Amino acid sequence: MMTNLFSMFDPSSSINNLSMNWMSNILGMLIIPSSLWLIPSRHYMLWNKIMLNIHKEFKMLIGYKTINKGSTFIFISLMSMIMFNNLMGLFPYIFTSTSHLIMSLTLALPFWLSFMLFGWMNNVKFMFAHLVPQGTPPLLMPFMVCIETISNFIRPGTLAVRLTANMIAGHLLLTLMGNVGPSLTMTLLSLLVIMQILLLMLESAVAIIQSYVFAVLSTLYSSEIN
Results as ranks from 00 to 15, higher is better:
residue 124 V to F: 15
residue 124 V to D: 06
residue 125 K to F: 05
residue 125 K to G: 15
residue 125 K to W: 03
residue 125 K to V: 11
residue 126 F to W: 14
residue 126 F to A: 15
residue 127 M to A: 13
residue 127 M to P: 07
residue 127 M to T: 08
residue 127 M to W: 09
residue 127 M to C: 13
residue 127 M to L: 11
residue 127 M to F: 06
residue 127 M to H: 05
residue 128 F to G: 04
residue 128 F to K: 15
residue 128 F to C: 14
residue 129 A to K: 06
residue 129 A to N: 10
residue 130 H to S: 15
residue 130 H to G: 11
residue 131 L to D: 07
residue 131 L to I: 10
residue 133 P to V: 04
residue 133 P to I: 06
residue 134 Q to Y: 12
residue 134 Q to A: 12
residue 134 Q to T: 12
residue 136 T to Q: 01
residue 136 T to L: 01
residue 136 T to E: 03
residue 136 T to D: 02
residue 136 T to M: 03
residue 137 P to A: 04
residue 138 P to D: 06
residue 138 P to Q: 05
residue 138 P to W: 03
residue 138 P to C: 02
residue 138 P to V: 04
residue 139 L to Q: 08
residue 139 L to W: 03
residue 139 L to E: 09
residue 139 L to G: 05
residue 140 L to P: 07
residue 140 L to H: 10
residue 140 L to D: 11
residue 142 P to D: 11
residue 142 P to F: 01
residue 143 F to N: 00
residue 143 F to H: 01
residue 144 M to L: 07
residue 144 M to C: 00
residue 145 V to W: 00
residue 145 V to R: 05
residue 145 V to H: 01
residue 145 V to M: 08
residue 145 V to K: 02
residue 146 C to W: 06
residue 146 C to R: 13
residue 147 I to L: 13
residue 147 I to P: 00
residue 147 I to M: 10
residue 147 I to S: 06
residue 147 I to E: 03
residue 148 E to Q: 08
residue 148 E to D: 03
residue 149 T to V: 08
residue 149 T to R: 10
residue 150 I to P: 01
residue 150 I to F: 15
residue 151 S to E: 08
residue 151 S to V: 07
residue 151 S to F: 08
residue 152 N to F: 01
residue 153 F to T: 07
residue 154 I to M: 06
residue 154 I to K: 04
residue 155 R to K: 09
residue 155 R to E: 06
residue 155 R to L: 12
residue 155 R to S: 07
residue 155 R to Y: 05
residue 155 R to N: 04
residue 156 P to N: 02
residue 156 P to M: 04
residue 157 G to C: 07
residue 158 T to D: 09
residue 158 T to C: 11
residue 158 T to H: 10
residue 158 T to Q: 09
residue 159 L to F: 09
residue 159 L to K: 04
residue 159 L to T: 05
residue 160 A to F: 01
residue 160 A to K: 04
residue 162 R to G: 14
residue 162 R to S: 15
residue 162 R to P: 06
residue 162 R to M: 15
residue 163 L to Q: 12
residue 163 L to A: 07
residue 164 T to Q: 11
residue 164 T to F: 01
residue 164 T to G: 00
residue 164 T to D: 00
residue 165 A to N: 11
residue 165 A to V: 13
residue 166 N to I: 00
residue 167 M to E: 13
residue 167 M to K: 09
residue 169 A to K: 13
residue 169 A to I: 10
residue 169 A to R: 11
residue 170 G to C: 08
residue 170 G to D: 11
residue 172 L to D: 01
residue 172 L to Q: 03
residue 172 L to I: 02
residue 172 L to S: 01
residue 173 L to N: 11
residue 173 L to K: 10
residue 174 L to E: 09
residue 174 L to H: 12
residue 175 T to L: 13
residue 175 T to E: 13
residue 175 T to Y: 09
residue 175 T to N: 14
residue 175 T to D: 14
